[in-house]
Amino acid sequence: MKMPPFRVLSPKSLDEALHMSRDLSDSGEAFDWIAGGTDLLPNYKWHINVKSHVISLSSIPELRKLSGNHIGAMVSINDLAEDAVTHPVLAKAANSVASVLIRKSGTVGGNICLDTRCYWVNQSETWRESIDWCYKCDCGTGADCRVIPNQNTLCVATYQADLAPVLMCLDATIHLASPAGTRSLPLCEFFELDGMTRNVLESGELVTHITIPEDSAEWSGDYQKLRQRDSWDFPEAGVAVLWKGISSSGPESLRVATTGLESIPSLHLEETKEALSRWRGAETIEDLAESIRKAVKPVQNTWFSPSYRRKMVKVLTKRACRDLLVS
């Protein structure tokens, strides 16, 4: 399969990258950032929303820094998984991404910004033509969404990246840069509920790094992932649960986030607040898990059915909470 032709620009510094992005927008050229390319290039091969230019972030040293609290956008998933400074739950999630080969190329920034996925769009051009295209990549036809038809305002493709829920539970901050300057925001405010826009990135803006609060070491927990095979497969559901300050009256703080179920990952604040307000051990965990199941609304566009994925969210939540009871 051949990609359509495009130009690759390889800036050597963040400044240069931002310059290039400004130059391209000034001349009205569209472009994509490319990090490891493990997500972008398969989509390009399928001719999905291909741009005339890509700016590669691979030669920018600033983006590669990795410490306990700072994760550069260009840190590879494999390095994140294997480095001793990485929070163990984050390392577990990183280790569950794709396969070892893909983890070596794939990056944290690319993982966070991963494009949403859907059975009706992650297909070749000929295939998509055979269903008369769909809203996300309509090739000028004004086609409808194939999953939830007759709305044409929203793509409900699924966000299936593994790192976000753990980082959200760790209360990570995401740092962005654009020709207009830099800004930082909590990771849970980064995503936008639309399978096409996906997140708050403006055109020409990129993710530089992620920071994690100093107290992250005090948090423990688990990440649980549902998939058919233990390699390659994207999460059909993923649940991160992290807590801190455990005592007989339950954890002092508790966070639950999910991925693989909707167009964005979600941090379930209300449900955990409710659980913490009257902690009764195993019973509460059961209730919490049930409330998470109710909170998520998967659609039929991945390998497993939505009803199964919802049921499994409950099981995964309980499993991720297992150590909460033991301790």
Binding site: Y119, Q123, W127, I131, Q228, R229, D230, S231, D233, W303
Partner: peptide, 22 residues
């Protein structure tokens, strides 16, 4: 096959051949 008769998984990511882990 999807509801309109299309083959939904004509690729090796979605056609689930067991991996070495399985």
């Amino acid at each position: 096959y999807g509801r309109n008769g299309n083959l939904m998984n004509p690729d090796l990511l979605d056609y689930k051949i067991p991996s070495v882990h399985e």
